[in-house]
Nucleic acid binder design. Structure first.
Lengths: 342, 342
DNA sequence: TTGTAGGCGTTATCAA
DNA sequence: TTGATAACGCCTACAA
């Protein structure tokens, strides 16, 4: 195995001390511009890359961010995950950070143990958290341990932390109004597990929307599901075989909506006219659904990147101007709610 | 931040040298049993965990295995990925290894760059490779660079490497025979991209099966798709609207089969009687499909674990007794091929 | 069976 | 503006 160049090799080749080389490369101000240029050039030519282990040992940092992907019931779709992970990795890599990923069943002891192990062994400098619960153990734990982290969506736990929130209340409410303007009056909602933040946000928006449009809320029109397409399929089947079925179904996410589309097809309902269906996520292939899916699009990749940059800021002690970022999703109107004139 | 105990702390607390502590914990034979016991006890009590960076620096190893998850066209299903990643992580963790994961579009320059970067910066000690192509750049590259790796499925590249292969030729051939015994004579096959190893294995098995049962091969009955359920849906739609449609469809994987089930429902075909449908993977919820899906089940979690243990063996220079492991999938017969007596 | 001491490659302190 | 030197925590010849 060929040994990579060390900082010593670079220093020797220039007749400089390793101290100077180190500082030139790290951008310290107390080094002359001409020297810095020579150093950077030589380092590049020799293919010098600082040894991570040595740097970590000395700096007492791991240059690594952790992401424990929640699996099990109510998982995210593959395209959500891969976009999210791509965003995390790209932002981390650009800042010379690694991303340590593992998956663990959400809420199970396995998950807790992993967090605890990574924290107690200083395995990572910070965390990104996804799929937040209304009361979230992870958030309380990390805050208490004073470990930097940023989360996608917020819990109700009374602690301060960095987060990105996708506005849902108003957006879903507007979605209801949009459907009401199509003279739809029997609008149903298929949600997720009640402990999820996103469920609460979105169902609240649904209720506001109904109220705003003077539509009564029928308890039979609210179904809890599990964010999967098969869950959505089952839920829709139940809704559609009622004596007075809905003429619109708002789904908590795109996956659920996929299942609804299948159920609608089975029930010979004409999606777009007979029955409007909407999702939430804007996952890549929602446009290829049959028919294409109206959805509230959230920029997953961008969100992931920003979460990493927020954690990095926390790690570096930079004070964030905004700790609670709010993003508005984009309504993408497609055929699943589009009444084609007869 | 509280500093974790170091080996020095442990040594001091026992009045021993750090050398002895180090060797006692690493299981060297030249340390008395009584001393070893004392050391282990004290280390445990003090919550001593060796500092990774220091150990890596000294040993010149990263104790990390890399996995670059291929994304983009023809991606695996979420449940495949999470089972696979769980297997990798668990086996790695048990051996005190980390798993560095990222995702990159398969075959794109982004993927190549990531491999090159991780190799050239000695970022990982070895790789696990998934979704192998018939001719696979990654395999040639890693073999050439002499980086330890193990792959799920094999390419045709003439290099030697550790791998796990799930037998498909005979299994799929037997599957054809099973369907033929139900007096099905018009058996179709929906495959994946031709460059994938699994496509070639499985379609070969399909062809052997046809030959063995003296069934003609109809080119119109072989459709290439992309391993996704929407791909399977499109392919099945085409197959089913033919003037003389198939009475059985063998799919390259479960995801594809899901799409086929939907298409069959749309076409009012009675799956199980009119039309048999089979998958390959045995992903967790294949049993919940409507109807439940007959499939060739491969133990993804176990395979992932074994891949890691193979890489570790390579890294440690242990000679593997078997470099090319072959696993037979289990045929799970369910309702999608089960003719319910009238 | 145990201890001494040197060094892995880097950054940080201090002096020049 | 630069350099000598001491850590960071661990492993491992080699010596005792």
């Amino acid at each position: 195995m060929i040994m990579p160049a060390t900082i010593r090799d670079v220093a020797k080749s220039l007749g400089l001390s390793i101290t100077t080389v180190s500082r030139a490369l790290d951008g310290y101000p107390d080094v002359s511009e001409s020297t810095r240029e020579r150093v950077i050039k030589a380092a590049h030519e020799m293919g010098y890359i600082p040894n991570r282990a040595a740097r970590q040992l000395r700096r007492r940092r791991t240059d690594t961010i952790g992401y424990i992907s929640p699996t099990g019931m109510s998982r995210f779709s593959e395209s959500f995950s891969s976009e999210f992970i791509a965003g995390l990795t790209d932002e981390a890599a650009e800042n010379n950070y690694d991303l340590l990923i593992t998956s663990a069943s959400a809420g199970r002891s396995q998950e807790q143990e992993t967090y605890r192990r990574w924290v107690s062994t200083h395995r990572v400098d910070g965390f990104v958290i996804n799929r937040v619960h209304r009361k979230d153990w992870r958030i309380r734990y990390l805050a208490e341990q004073q470990i930097p982290f940023a989360s996608f969506e917020r819990s109700t736990d009374p602690v301060e932390y960095a987060s990105i929130h996708v506005e849902a209340h108003e957006s879903v409410s507007n979605l209801v109004s949009y459907l009401a303007k199509q003279n739809r009056t029997r609008i149903a909602f298929i949600g997720g597990p009640e402990f999820l933040t996103i469920h609460n946000d979105r169902i609240d928006g649904y209720r506001s929307g109904l109220a705003e449009n003077h539509l009564p809320e029928d308890p039979a029109f609210v179904v809890l599901s599990d964010l999967t397409s098969s869950g959505g399929y089952q839920a829709a089947k139940r809704l559609l075989k009622a004596s007075n079925p809905p003429d619109a179904i708002i789904c908590i996410n795109d996956e659920t909506a996929y299942g609804v589309l299948h159920a609608a097809r089975e029930a010979h309902r004409n999606v777009g006219t007979d029955l409007a269906v909407t999702g939430f996520d804007g996952i890549e292939n929602s446009i290829y659904a049959q028919p294409s899916l109206t959805t509230l699009d959230q920029p997953v990749y961008k969100i992931a990147r920003q979460l990493v940059s927020m954690v990095l800021a926390e790690i570096n002690g930079t004070t964030l101007t905004v700790k609670e970022v709010v993003i508005k999703p984009t309504l993408r109107i497609r055929d699943s709610t589009h009444v084609i004139p007869a």
